[in-house]
């Protein structure tokens, strides 16, 4: 029989600890597949965040470093500057990258660090019990906004990839979603381009991926996909939001 789909060598054999239906696992797989397909496993340093994906260092088949909460891009900056021959990526939640680590993310983008950030936006703090995140939607019920997020007192959701398009050193910015087989294929394309931007030395590349948190959204995994499609997608800019003007070479 002809294999159509088999497990990538870019991931270890360790089963994921994520909740049933949590799409962190899909995003891990896409990264693992690209590490294998782009022949990067042996030359990659990944940086893990704090959050549900804090244990992702167990799953990627490359070298990994664990960073303090929000500091993954700062750690990745050090790794890349010390070892410019390595492919360096960060894997971060929206709490990690857009809340406690907002300054690190924007500063790394401004410096045009030759690293790639994968930003998993599930509109909530998953690991700590479903608190409101900077990305939570207006009206969204969370454990710290039990009556729904009210813009008057809790402000508005932050669309981080949209903001990063304004930063010169961020040369590739995409926003995708893993809510369907089609979406998953598009997400992989965006990740591949982001990886290539780093390999070409062009600057900072950033891929935001809309993801589910069935557990803290209080819905089943299939309902979570639907909530992502109908509630989240309309509120965030989607697609390749910024692509490099010059392909290849060192100049931005």
């Amino acid at each position: 029989m002809k294999p159509i789909f088999t497990k990538t060598k870019g991931l270890t054999d360790r089963p994921f600890h994520y909740c049933p239906g949590c799409t962190h696992g899909i995003i891990h797989r896409l990264i693992g597949e690209l590490l294998e397909e782009m022949n990067l496993i042996e030359k990659t340093i990944g940086v893990a965040p704090v959050g549900c994906s804090g244990f992702c260092e167990n799953y990627f088949a490359c070298d990994m470093i664990g960073a303090a909460h929000g500091r993954a891009v700062a750690v990745a900056t050090g790794a890349k500057r010390a070892r410019p021959d390595r492919f360096v990526f960060t894997y971060q939640g929206d709490g990690d990258g857009a809340s406690i680590g907002l300054a690190e993310t924007i500063s790394a983008a401004a410096r045009g660090e030759r690293i790639t950030s994968i930003f998993v936006n599930n509109a909530i703090y998953g690991m700590t019990g479903g608190q409101m995140a900077p990305t939570s939607l207006i009206g969204q019920k969370t454990s710290t906004s039990p009556y729904g997020r009210d813009a008057e007192t809790m402000g508005f959701p932050l669309d981080l990839p949209k903001i990063l398009t304004q930063v010169e050193g961020a040369v590739y910015v995409a926003s995708v979603s893993v809510d369907s087989p089609q979406g998953i294929k598009e997400a992989k394309k965006a990740l591949r381009r982001a990886f290539q931007v780093q390999l070409d030395g062009l600057g900072y590349s950033f891929v935001s991926i809309l993801s589910t948190c069935p557990t803290n959204w209080g819905v089943n995994p299939v309902e979570a996909l639907e909530w992502l499609q109908t509630k989240m997608k309309p509120h965030f800019a989607l697609g390749e939001l910024k692509v490099p003007t010059i392909e290849g070479g060192d100049a931005v």
Binding site: P3, I4, C22, G25, R29, S180
Partner: peptide
Amino acid sequence: IACAFCALICPDLALEVYREE
């Protein structure tokens, strides 16, 4: 039909798909 949609969406790498030749 071996479209592999199931394997693409499985978050836990539980599925592999093979096509009959």
